[in-house]
Structures are given as C-alpha cells and as structure tokens.
Computed example of a mutant assay.
Amino acid sequence: MNDAFKALADPTRRRILELLAESEKNAGDIADYFNISKPSISHHLSILKNADLISDERQGQNIVYTLNTTIFQDLVKWFFDFTKKEGIGGDESE
C-alpha cells in the first residue's frame, strides 16, 4: 500500500487516474491530455502499474490501461479504519 500512496502523491499520476476512471485508454490517448513527453507518460504509467493502481492489457498493437478498483477499495477501507480508530471526523464515543 505504501507504493500506492507514493504514486498518488504526484498530480500528474492523479490526473491519469481520473482519466482512466472515465474509460480505458492507451498511452497515446493519455499523453494527449498532457504537455509532457511520451517517455514521461510511460514512466508515470509504470509507477501506477507497479503500485497496482492500474492494469494493462495488450489489444492488437496497443496496450490499454484500466483502473484497478480493488486497490482503491483497500485504500478507502484503510482510511475508514484509520479515522475510526483515531476518532478523526467521527463520534469518539463509539
């Protein structure tokens, strides 16, 4: 989960995740949204993939990236458990 938090720290990677939440995309489609080099996009995609935030699948000559919702469910559960345990934002009498 540490890799996921590190990956989420970067605004470019967060924007890539937002794009993938809309629909699956290949690297070229993703690159069209940014004013950075394609190797930089590939680097960001690699970090997201290594953190299990996205997955990829070859479709013909393209590699298509999709959001891995399972890891987000784990992150949300961690946040929920953390805030409940620490009494953050909730009723501390529970």
Rank of each mutant, 00 (worst) to 15 (best):
F80V: 07
I41H: 02
W78P: 01
A51I: 01
P11D: 13
G90T: 09
L67N: 01
K6H: 13
F79R: 06
D32Y: 08
I16R: 00
D32L: 14
L8N: 00
A21V: 05
I54V: 14
A21N: 15
N68E: 09
K84E: 09
A31Q: 10
G28P: 01
I41G: 06
D32F: 03
N68L: 02
A9C: 10
E57A: 14
Q59A: 12
S42Y: 15
D32A: 15
L45M: 09
A21C: 07
A4T: 00
K25I: 03
N62M: 08
K6W: 02
I41F: 04
K38Y: 11
I16V: 09
Q73S: 12
R15V: 02
M1K: 10
E18M: 15
E94S: 10
R15M: 11
G60T: 12
L17W: 09
S93I: 01
N2W: 08
W78G: 03
Q59V: 15
E94Q: 12
D10E: 13
P39G: 12
M1P: 11
K6F: 15
M1C: 02
E18V: 13
L20G: 08
D56K: 12
D3P: 02
K77I: 01
R58S: 15
N35M: 10
S37W: 04
D32M: 11
D3A: 13
D29K: 14
S37E: 07
T83D: 06
E86Y: 04
K25R: 15
F82L: 13
A31V: 08
T12W: 02
F80D: 04
L45S: 07
D3T: 13
Q73G: 10
I36W: 03
K84R: 09
A21W: 08
I54A: 07
S37F: 03
A4N: 00
T69A: 14
T83L: 01
D32I: 07
D74P: 00
H44F: 09
P11G: 01
